[in-house]
Simulated assay, not measured.
Amino acid sequence: MALTKPNQQLRRDLKEAAALLKWAGVDLYVVSKRMMATGDEQGAMEMMKLAMSLQETEDKLAGYAGEVKDGRISRAAEQRK
């Protein structure tokens, strides 16, 4: 079953948001490694927790995008901008 245009857009938006979270998490992880090297272990651990939280949310959004593709989630009407 082909996706409607609103569902295609929903899927693209979810995938884009997931990708942004992924790269933000990667950036936070890199910064936390630098912080660890400078001796700020507490700050580094807090940054790593945040990076892991972003990764969990990324996984959820990617799962939702898959559900849109499978037809289990759909956008009821075209959203106006």
Rank of each mutant, 00 (worst) to 15 (best):
L21R: 09
A19W: 12
A44P: 05
R80I: 08
T4R: 10
G66N: 11
K69I: 03
G43Y: 05
Q8P: 00
D59N: 12
V26L: 06
D40R: 08
R11S: 03
R34S: 15
A19Q: 14
R72S: 08
Y64R: 09
G63V: 01
A2S: 12
K5I: 07
R34V: 04
V26S: 03
A24P: 02
A77E: 12
K15W: 03
M36Q: 15
M36I: 01
M45S: 12
A65R: 05
N7G: 07
L50K: 08
E67P: 00
V26D: 13
A65C: 11
E67L: 14
Q8Y: 00
S53G: 12
W23Y: 15
A76H: 02
E58V: 01
T4P: 03
M45T: 08
L14F: 13
K49Q: 10
I73E: 01
K49W: 03
R34C: 11
M36K: 13
L54H: 03
K5W: 01
K15G: 00
G66A: 07
Q79Y: 04
A77N: 04
D27S: 15
M52I: 04
K5F: 01
E46R: 13
E46G: 00
K15S: 10
A17Q: 12
G66L: 05
G25S: 15
L14T: 05
I73D: 01
A18G: 05
M48A: 06
Y64K: 11
T57W: 05
M48F: 08
K60S: 10
W23K: 14
V30L: 10
G66C: 08
R12K: 11
K5L: 12
V31I: 14
G39A: 04
R75A: 05
K69H: 10
L50S: 08
V68Q: 00
G43T: 13
